[in-house]
Design a protein around this nucleic acid. Structure first.
Lengths: 201, 201
DNA sequence: ACCTGAACACCGTTCAAGT
DNA sequence: ACCTGAACACCGTTCAAGT
């Protein structure tokens, strides 16, 4: 009766649980009961809970559009990746923390970076300059989307509670800024900074 | 025999535990036994574990040098804050995840942002432009330092284990980039992008 | 008032046993 | 081979009881 129980099925179920009930719902016991299986059965397909977390990160980064398009220059590649990863963060806000805390030198994040590098180099940027630009842009994306995702998750959690009790002007200023326009503007600031630096070299 | 048990003592003990034994050591039971006190005693001074986490974030951000210096222009303020918060992340790598995942519209992070705004405005930047610049720089700092802190934490944890088994060239390229020079260069790229945008307005 | 052990409903993981 | 319940050593939190 096991519906193709596998590492991927386990990770996919885990992501569904996080999307539905929050990050703290990512539990071996929850996954097992969702799959109508004993808890210890999971250990036949997965070594530890951390392995499931890594697989979930892989699922999330797999949703990002990192394919190269012909005729696309590197700025366009980076804009498309930025928009795409932001969409993932908005679709899976509670799970996005896992992406932000994932080790950058291991499989899922490394594969993601490699794909973006390939598409960027195809877009006419040197490998060295790609690394320099991705260093800044990846850090920015991680930080920005982490903050947005945290705010989204908490807003969603507060839905069931009373109306908001926020009334601080500064707080409003700082959070309203998280918008499509602010995100795009920030990305352009970084690209402008890169272009200026390289123009001088 | 209670050594001034208070919210701050609890948070300070919690931070020491994280620094010594990692983030998963931040446990009510560990804090209590460190203070030679029953677990439930903590509930006399703290409502939930999350409150302790928020207090630890406050301690970390309190270590950042956000004071205004006379004669300092806004770029210098932002460089000093960046260097200072990076030092905090290096001193408390395991705890830094808490800063990155903390809600940006609540007390500890909000106070921190307010102090930097004040120093920056004293350094000759308008409030509107400060918000625009901090949006990018804060996201960059959060993302960059999160990655560094994660790498540091894992490297420290691997000390007790065997020698590293890493042998991938690309992985080396991507991680070596995390250096003082790369950090400073990234910050200058963002500042250059901001100046260019404002120069055109 | 302040502190507390016992208890509750959970965790991840191991292990010996079932089929 | 594959799956499993019971058990272990933990969690945060509550509650009624101690001093």
């Amino acid at each position: 009766m096991h519906l193709h129980l596998s590492r991927e099925t386990i990770a996919r179920t885990g992501l569904e649980l996080i999307d539905r009930d929050g990050l703290e719902a990512l539990t071996l016991r929850n996954i097992a009961s969702e799959l109508s299986v004993g808890v210890t059965t999971l250990y036949g397909h997965v070594r530890t809970r951390d392995e499931i977390v890594s697989d979930v990160v892989g699922l999330l980064l797999g949703e990002v559009d990192t394919t190269a398009r012909s005729g696309e220059v590197w700025e366009e590649v980076l804009r498309r990746v930025a928009t795409s990863v932001r969409a993932v963060a908005h679709r899976h806000p509670a799970a996005f923390t896992l992406v932000a805390t994932a080790p950058v030198d291991e499989a899922p994040v490394l594969d993601y970076a490699r794909a973006i590098e390939e598409a960027s180099v195809a877009g006419g940027i040197s490998e060295q300059r790609f690394i320099e630009s991705w260093q800044v842009i990846d850090a920015f994306l991680t930080g920005f989307l982490m903050m947005e995702a945290t705010a989204l998750t908490r807003a969603r959690a507060a839905e069931a509670d009373d109306a908001g009790t926020t009334s601080d002007a500064f707080r409003g200023d700082m959070s309203k800024v998280h918008s499509d326009a602010a995100f795009a503007a920030a990305l352009e600031i970084i690209i402008a900074g890169l272009r200026q630096k390289w123009g001088r070299e």
